[in-house]
């Protein structure tokens, strides 16, 4: 139910409300969180950014849900990438060694191949995802939002008692 609420909110946000920049920033943050293993320091920091800054939460949660599901499939790739970065580039060894000996850095578990691989992937993909999502929101709002609203299936869903009930709940629980 919690997730359903966010999905509805996300579709609403696509259409109206927050600016495309806020929606895509929330989405990108959620994408980065979902891509990385959960119990790490930088993951926690991204959570704080998502919760505290004025970005679209629903987009963040939806992105997080989607990428978490997909990330499992990419774990072997993350492992290979992480191993390459940590062990196969001699020039970086000193840097990793220095990080390893710093007090806070080991809490990020950067020395784990999957953590490093997913973190690097998230860093690389963050800006393209942000830009792509922003463009998508603008295009959706300009060209598809009205068409989608007029679709019979959408209207049928909106007219259903289930949707009304969800909507009521959403209004009650809105922050």
């Amino acid at each position: 139910m919690f997730w359903l609420n966010f999905i509805i909110k996300f579709f609403k946000a696509l259409r109206t409300g927050d600016s495309p920049g806020q929606v895509s920033a929330g989405f990108s943050l959620g994408f980065a969180i979902g891509l990385m293993p959960f119990f790490t320091l930088h993951s926690l920091l991204l959570w704080l950014v998502l919760l505290l800054f004025n970005v679209n939460l629903a987009a963040g949660f939806v992105a997080m849900m989607l990428t978490s599901l997909l990330a499992v499939l990419f774990d072997p790739f993350f492992h290979d990438l992480g191993f390459f970065l940590l062990a196969q580039i001699p020039g970086l060894h000193n840097f990793w060694e220095m990080l390893y000996n710093l007090p806070i850095a080991p809490l990020t578990k950067f020395y784990n191949t999957v953590v490093m691989g997913s973190m690097a992937s998230a860093l690389v993909l963050f800006v393209p995802v942000y830009l792509a999502m922003k463009k998508l929101v603008i295009i959706y709002r300009d060209k598809f939002a009205e068409h989608v609203q007029k679709l019979k299936i959408v209207q049928a869903v909106k007219a259903s008692s289930f949707y009304r009930w969800i909507d009521k709940l959403q209004r009650l629980g809105d922050i």
């Binding site: 293993p37 119990f39 990330a71 499992v72 774990d75 072997p76 993350f78 492992h79 992480g82 191993f83 940590l86 062990a87 060894h93 990793w96 060694e97 390893y100 000996n101 020395y111 784990n112 191949t113 999957v114 953590v115 691989g117």
Partner: peptide
């Protein structure tokens, strides 16, 4: 163990 694929910990020289 993490639920997802655990990966491999690469341990570096620890001065402390």
């Amino acid at each position: 163990e993490p639920q997802r694929f655990a990966g491999q910990d690469i341990h570096f020289r620890f001065y402390r």
